[in-house]
């Protein structure tokens, strides 16, 4: 809006600054606290000035929470979730948009409905299946013939178990579908006339054209995978499969232990870094992918 209204300007600025402080405040606390000694971080009033203790705190946090293993696990999980999501959603959207199948709309809507069901809602049944993959089969068999099978096959304490249930959601499919629908029909027809089959069309046309889309999805999904807490907590009992979000929990000072918040804050700062790096590197495409489709 192009208007000259000093009072409105002042109010808008005030709201903006307030919002900014609300957003940046916790970060300032983390950055300042992570570099202070235990005495400084517990001092009242809290000082927002960074000190020189960050390396010491970080080292301590790293060792206490075994962040090396946890970071590796989280990284593997986030990468697998991201890759799986991108692959699955581009392929499902390809099937939904470019193939004429009789139950196309049914498929789309059943995929679409799961958009509204985040993992947290279906966590119990998902856990039940992951804990005993053959359970549905067993159930059917026992229903019909009373046959019992004693084989146990579960996904607990494995990367598969950590990632697979997270991959099967519809956000990405929806994003890809919206993009594919903006492509003119003639593009697919021209490729067909040029002799390209569906697989070739997917790799030669759709993947390169949806690059921005893919990078945007990668960014979202990496952060999503990295931030998972509830699901790993359920799936993992073996400490060698611990993820960073679980370690973060173990960094919190015990109820009547030493209140070394400086170590906790240094640990959370370390844990925050990988998604920040990913977002920082990909943000240019991320914004473009969400705002517009460049064709």
């Amino acid at each position: 809006m192009i208007q000259r209204t000093p009072i409105a300007d002042a109010v808008t600025y005030a709201i903006m600054v307030l919002g900014f402080i609300l957003l940046i405040g916790p970060f300032l606390v983390i950055i300042a606290g992570a570099s202070q000694t235990m005495q400084q971080v517990n001092a009242i009033p809290f000082s927002f000035l960074p000190e020189n203790q960050f390396l010491a705190n970080a080292t301590q946090a790293w060792q206490r929470a075994d962040l090396g293993t946890a970071m590796t696990n989280s990284l593997i999980m986030a990468v697998l979730v991201t890759a799986g999501k991108v692959a699955l959603s581009s392929l499902t959207a390809f099937a939904i948009v470019f193939f004429r199948s009789p139950l196309k709309h049914l498929f789309f809507w059943s995929v679409f409905i799961t958009l509204m069901l985040p993992l947290e809602v279906r966590v119990v049944p998902t856990y039940a299946v992951a804990a005993d993959l053959l359970q549905p089969v067993k159930f059917i068999l026992s229903l019909f013939g009373g046959i019992q099978i004693g084989v146990d096959w579960n996904l607990l304490n494995s990367y598969t178990g950590l990632t697979l249930p997270l991959i099967a959601t519809a956000t990405g499919t929806f994003l890809y579908r919206q993009f594919f629908m903006t492509l003119p029909d003639e593009l697919a027809e021209a490729a067909r006339m040029d002799g390209s089959g569906p697989v070739r069309f997917f790799f030669d046309m759709l993947l390169p054209l949806s690059r921005t889309n893919m990078l945007a999805l990668t960014t979202i999904m990496f952060v999503y995978g990295w931030n998972q807490y509830l699901w790993p907590l359920l799936m993992v009992t073996d400490p060698s499969y611990k993820t960073v979000m679980m370690s973060l929990r173990s960094l919190l000072p015990a109820d009547n232990g030493t209140p070394d918040w400086n170590v906790t804050l240094a640990g959370s700062l370390l844990i925050m870094l990988p998604p920040l790096v990913v977002v920082g590197v990909l943000q240019r495409w991320f914004v473009r992918g969400l705002v517009a489709t460049d064709k």
Binding site: P184, E186, L187, E189, A190, A191, R192, M193, D194, G195, M205, P208, L209, K295
Partner: peptide, 20 residues
């Protein structure tokens, strides 16, 4: 027959070039 087996080439109204 599939389009590629018919030996026809087509020019579309809106060109349908591969943008990338």
């Amino acid at each position: 027959l599939e389009p590629r087996e018919r030996g026809c080439a087509m020019v579309f109204q809106n060109y349908a070039l591969y943008p990338h």
